[in-house]
Design a protein around this nucleic acid. Structure first.
Length: 271
DNA sequence: AAAAGCCCCTGGATGC
DNA sequence: TGCATCCAGGGGCTTT
């Protein structure tokens, strides 16, 4: 489910409401990707000051310490004054004076990790290797092109890796490469500067448009208010194998790269 | 250093 | 209906 747009849409849907809330209690369900590492005396009494996003992580800033949340493949958050009794896939509840923040994650690839500070070992382990934020001014052509230059892997997989630029997952990698007219199998190092610029702008554009549409809901994504996203309806190639390209009519092709599906138009993305 | 493969986990879709 | 197989939006870890 969650790539940058879905995580950002989730953040926007509850950040203002939870800011200023005092934590009352924490409930943990089944183990997630990593141990939560909560302080021995819990989090009760701490105040949620803000919700930020770094890549696909949400950072809940507390008056002391912070919580790192990751939605994995199947996670979603909900924030409501009252929550129903926890179901089998509800693995984290943060009860606060303003409502309960709940993580539902059937596959449990997600994570909730407490860190004393953003510079602590626990936080650096998760955030340290992340690339530049694509929707900020820091995402410039010089560094992006230079980064592509030194990678020989297929450009699709370089986008997914997240160490050059964060937030681009399997849907938006295919979509951005389509917009840029670049074949996903092209070695990153072979991308010219003008084409790198096309790709940079395409990444920014597709992610920004997806945020505006509430993200993509393929099966079960919803924001913290329970609302689905609609960007999947605008997908040019993702999950459209065999269907006509929306630009030229050529059947969209599906291949596998690194155990993940990639979609592209053989005509619009010739090289 | 970088790339390729494997693995974590559950559930839905498909095929026999 | 039952069962096996494959696939899914992520990404860390190990091996080449």
């Amino acid at each position: 489910m969650p790539e940058l747009p879905e995580v950002e849409v989730t953040r926007l849907s509850f950040a203002d409401r939870i800011a200023g809330a005092r934590i009352e209690s924490v409930r943990l369900g089944k183990p997630l990707r990593w141990p939560a590492g909560l302080p021995a005396n819990g989090l009760a009494g701490r105040v949620v000051q803000a919700v930020r996003r770094r890549g696909k992580y949400l950072l809940l800033d507390l008056d002391e310490g912070l919580l790192l949340l990751h939605l994995g493949m199947s996670g979603s958050l909900s924030f409501a004054a009252r929550q129903p009794a926890a179901g089998v896939h509800d693995h984290f509840d943060l009860a606060t004076t303003r409502g309960v923040l709940r993580l539902n994650d059937p596959r449990r690839f997600g994570a909730v990790v407490y860190a004393h500070s953003e510079d602590s070992a626990e936080a650096v382990k998760l955030l340290g290797g992340l690339g530049v934020e694509p929707l900020t001014e820091a995402f410039g052509l010089d560094a992006f092109h230079a980064g592509l230059k030194r990678r020989h892997a297929p450009v699709k997989q370089v986008l997914l890796a997240g160490d050059l630029v964060v937030g681009v997952g399997n849907i938006y990698a295919s979509e951005a490469l389509f917009m840029a007219g670049i074949r996903p199998t092209l070695r990153a190092s072979r991308i010219s500067r003008p084409r790198a610029e096309k790709l940079r702008l395409a990444v920014r554009d597709v992610l920004a448009r997806a945020v505006a549409k509430g993200g993509s809901t393929l099966r079960d994504f919803s924001n913290a208010d329970g609302q689905a996203g609609y960007f999947q309806l605008e997908a040019m190639v993702y999950d459209r194998a065999g269907q006509p390209c929306r630009v030229c009519g050529t059947p969209v092709k599906s291949i596998r790269q690194g155990q993940r599906a990639t979609y592209f138009c053989p005509h619009c993305q010739k090289s």
